[in-house]
């Protein structure tokens, strides 16, 4: 464990909690892409199956359970409890265009052709593009609530910090995982235009609105 990975995990946890509280407190999921949240639940489900096969540490197990629990709770709030506030018309990204290619790629390019490893690879590839429906929805509505931008900032920051974690681990442990690194770079690059808008607008107290 290193400082980049720890702050990355905490940033990820903060994002997940911010979103869950935003929906719960405001009793509304306006502006939130339910499709992205389903993809994240799928990412955690396929990545954390090793909860049943190996114990790494209490921290590792607890965080995985929290991530999975919050992900499904968020999906439940969006599609069940507060479904009346779900903006399905703007959440129109064709997720099959993500899941199918990612599924194919995870079968073609992986470290080991075993079920758990392919599912882990699938979750790594899927996570790198899982935010696209959310970013697409913001581009369609042309704006985002400020709390949603904080959620996205923490979510984007987490994988950016993981990139530093991998640099650290390569330098100090001689360890690297090309699949996780390439997917992590793609994932972080997808946030770049959002990061720019967040820093130039939201941090200056303005509302995040895109030129429609």
């Amino acid at each position: 464990m290193n400082i980049f990975r720890l702050t990355g995990d905490l940033s990820h946890l903060a994002a997940i909690i911010i979103l869950l509280l935003k929906i719960w407190k405001s009793r509304s999921c306006a502006g939130i892409s339910g499709k992205s949240q389903i993809l994240f639940a799928l990412v955690f489900t396929t990545r954390y199956l090793d909860l049943f096969t190996s114990f790494i540490s209490l921290y590792n197990t607890c965080m995985k359970l929290i991530y999975i629990g919050c992900a499904y709770a968020t999906v439940y709030l969006i599609y069940a409890k507060f479904r009346a506030t779900y903006d399905g018309n703007h959440d129109s990204f064709r997720v099959e265009f993500l899941v199918v290619p990612v599924g194919g790629l995870s079968v073609l390019i992986n470290h080991d052709f075993s079920p758990l490893e392919i599912l882990w690879t699938f979750s790594i590839y899927l996570e790198s593009v899982a935010i696209l429906p959310q970013l697409f929805m913001i581009s369609k509505t042309g704006e985002a609530e400020t709390i949603t931008t904080h959620y996205l900032f923490c979510l984007g920051l987490y994988r950016a910090l993981y990139l530093f974690n991998w640099i650290w681990r390569f330098y100090f442990e001689g360890f690297f995982d090309m699949i996780a690194i390439v997917a992590g770079v793609v994932q972080t690059v997808l946030y770049c235009d959002f990061f720019y808008l967040y820093v130039t607008k939201v941090l200056k107290g303005k509302k995040l609105s895109l030129p429609a």
Partner: peptide, 10 residues
């Protein structure tokens, strides 16, 4: 690269 080593990451 040892992908098993990566499984200690979230």
């Amino acid at each position: 690269p040892d992908s098993q080593g990566n499984k200690d990451e979230l």
